[in-house]
Computed example of a mutant assay.
Amino acid sequence: MHWATEYVGRRWSATGNGPDCFHCWSFVRWVQRVNFGRTVSEIPTPETLLDIVRLFRGHPELQRWRAVDTACEGDCVLMRQARYPVHVGVWVDVDGGGVLHCVQGHGVIFQSLSDLQQSGWNIHAYYRFQGSGS
């Protein structure tokens, strides 16, 4: 059984920090640490969409990730529903590939690229961890 299976169905929470409930960034941090041995910086939970955009643009954590054209197991997937990226998940190489992410109202789910699009998510970029602990 793939490691990602154990996460599907865990709850979403604005203040969640694992192991049973998460928000999208806390879920990425948890998976990177537990499954890939990578320490990823915390990002405070933003209150508005504008706060999210500002955090993604200016946070020093982004310097530890390199944009790549094709995702591999464990890469970070930055997503958007409109113009700006506001959501993040982890690429999983099963069933043709897809994103494991924690969504408000649903919790942790796995979605193929076509399922993501049907849910209104567009891939903004794939990022590969380049920092210490990789």
Rank of each mutant, 00 (worst) to 15 (best):
E61H: 01
N35T: 11
G131L: 01
L100S: 14
R38D: 01
S13W: 01
C24H: 02
L55D: 14
F56Y: 13
I43C: 01
G58F: 10
I123A: 09
V53F: 03
V31S: 05
R33F: 03
T15K: 00
Q130R: 13
G97L: 04
V28A: 10
G98Q: 06
W12V: 05
G16W: 01
S112P: 07
W3M: 05
G58C: 00
Q81M: 15
V8H: 05
G98W: 06
E73K: 06
D95V: 12
P60S: 12
W121P: 05
L78M: 14
L100P: 08
C76N: 07
F22M: 06
D20N: 12
L49M: 15
C24G: 07
Q118A: 15
F22W: 09
V108T: 07
V103A: 11
S132V: 15
L55F: 10
T5V: 14
P44G: 14
G131I: 03
P60Q: 07
D20E: 10
E61C: 01
C24L: 05
Q81K: 07
R66H: 09
Y7K: 13
F22A: 05
Q117H: 12
V77I: 13
V99L: 09
D51G: 11
H101Y: 01
H2T: 11
R11G: 08
V94F: 04
G97P: 03
G16C: 00
G89Q: 09
R38V: 07
T70P: 03
S112N: 04
P46W: 06
V8P: 09
T48Y: 01
